[in-house]
């Protein structure tokens, strides 16, 4: 059963077409890896799938919602309820601790704070990230990466969109992270759409799609 359906997605920047009518279906619970050379539009595709970028042509349906039809507030609700994000540059607030960064979206959205805090602590412990009062600006790059992953998982999303989630990690940490993601994914049933380059991680994927010339090519 599909959770994302993208049809004829095109996106141009100043006249230069980056995505050229690509089609994509993401199924519930699957791990979909996207590869491709630098600058081919992988991050752009994730931005569109994450409803951050709306200046595209084509149709995008997430969890049965046609995103073209949704107002800003409805899109925000869709992101909050169905999507989790791990940004390439983490996008953490440096003056906050790891746990505060993870629960921040819940704090501002008015969700169940106690549950979120407890869940955040569990996820951070699983990822071996300290839950003390250390500001994230003082954490290592690898630790910050794991905090970003934890934040992506805290709202128990239907889809986790991750832009090179293990880029800053050594091989061992990378394996630990994806072991955890696999475990959580199987437990909670969310899909993972990740931009990945590491062979070790690509082997874990259910499907691998290569973005080339603006469209996706299946490699498995």
């Amino acid at each position: 059963m599909s959770i994302i359906q993208a049809r004829e997605i095109s996106r141009s920047f100043e006249g230069m077409e980056v995505l050229s009518g690509l089609d994509l279906t993401v199924f519930k619970g699957e791990f979909l890896a996207i590869t491709g050379r630098s600058g081919v539009g992988k991050s752009t595709l994730l931005s569109i799938l994450g409803t951050h970028d709306r200046d595209f042509n084509g149709n995008l349906s997430i969890a049965g919602n046609d995103t073209r039809e949704l107002k800003s507030s409805e899109l925000a609700a869709l992101r909050r309820e169905h999507l989790g994000f791990v940004f390439q540059d983490f996008h953490l607030l440096p003056s906050l601790t790891a746990i505060e960064n993870v629960i921040l979206p819940v704090v501002f959205s008015g969700g169940n704070l106690e549950m979120a805090r407890s869940h955040a602590e569990d996820v951070l412990k699983m990822l071996s990230v300290r839950t003390d009062q250390t500001k994230t600006s003082l954490l290592s790059r690898g630790e910050r990466q794991r905090v970003a992953v934890a934040r992506g998982l805290v709202n128990r999303p239907s889809i986790l969109l991750a832009d090179e989630p293990s880029a800053s990690l050594d091989e061992e940490s990378e394996q630990i992270l994806f072991n955890l993601l696999d475990e959580t994914r199987k437990e909670q049933g969310f899909a993972v759409v990740a931009v990945v380059h590491s062979k070790g991680i690509l082997e874990r994927a259910d499907r691998i799609l290569e973005l080339k010339d603006g469209i996706l090519h299946e490699t498995i």
Partner: peptide, 13 residues
């Protein structure tokens, strides 16, 4: 931008 990207409602912000 981070808060909006993570789904914080505009009106609440």
């Amino acid at each position: 931008g981070v808060l909006i990207a993570l789904g914080t409602p505009y009106d609440r912000l």
